[in-house]
């Protein structure tokens, strides 16, 4: 297991958001982290990354992760693509990429192979990119460096259907090289990409198993994820 989360608890602003979350992420392929809006998916990723205080235990690549500073975990190969992309709007595309580089020999070939547009737009300020382009830049930032696990939070949120399928294709290619824990509301994307799924409900893991088993059962899907979930084809 590349990541083992055990009994993870987080309290934010007085409310007990995660109440003992436990799950594992295998070292290959994509694992989906699912659940209704506001259940604590983003909170889980941020706690693993050390951005917010948490109790319990998190083991990343055989090393305890809780309590370690974020930048050290990242340097150990934990890549993060946050929910709202968080590209630096005042920096150019090239500067955003340059900032992310931390290896001797950054993999620009893979990045520009997947996202040729970023090369053409290298002098454009990132704040003026479209949502889809910003998402690509956010993914590119983690692809420049060798990684052992990627935490990716709702990469298709707010994108048009054609762009969603481009992003899904990019994720599929990326997953050939590095495992991912993927938060995603678009169930068609989840079905296409994720082998396993972890479902959060009421601060705990409510279901854990093969994605096909979850999504192949409409009643269970509705029960765990709610009727509002997107099932549009990518």
């Amino acid at each position: 297991m590349i990541l083992s989360v055990h009994d993870l608890s987080v309290t934010l602003g007085g409310s007990h958001i995660l109440q003992g979350v436990s799950f594992d992420v295998p070292p290959t392929g994509i694992t989906a982290l699912l659940g209704r809006n506001g259940v604590g998916k983003t909170t889980t990723l941020r706690a693993v990354l050390g951005e917010i205080p948490a109790t319990g235990s998190v083991d990343f690549g055989g090393v305890p992760a809780l309590g370690r500073p974020t930048h050290r975990l990242v340097r150990d190969g934990l890549g993060y693509v946050p929910e709202d992309r968080c590209v630096f709007a005042g920096l150019t595309v090239a500067e955003n990429l340059r900032l992310a580089v931390r290896s001797q020999d950054p993999d620009f070939r893979t990045v520009f192979g997947l996202f040729p547009e970023l090369k053409q737009r290298s002098d454009q300020s990132a704040g003026t990119l479209s949502g889809g382009q910003q998402q690509m830049l956010a993914l590119a930032r983690v692809l420049l460096n060798p990684q052992r696990l990627l935490l990716i939070d709702e990469p298709t949120k707010g994108l048009a259907p054609a762009v969603i399928s481009a992003v899904a294709a990019a994720l599929e290619r990326m997953a050939e090289r590095v495992p991912m824990l993927l938060v995603e509301q678009n169930l068609a994307v989840v079905r296409r990409l994720a082998r396993d799924a972890v479902v959060l409900a009421a601060g705990r893991v409510a279901w854990h198993g093969p994605t096909e088993e979850l999504l192949g059962d409409p009643a269970r899907t509705r029960d765990l994820l709610g009727v509002g979930s997107t099932v549009r084809r990518p």
Partner: peptide, 11 residues
């Protein structure tokens, strides 16, 4: 702009 994101890039 966003210092948490700078840390999340390993800096």
């Amino acid at each position: 702009e966003n210092r948490a994101m700078v840390s999340a890039l390993g800096i």
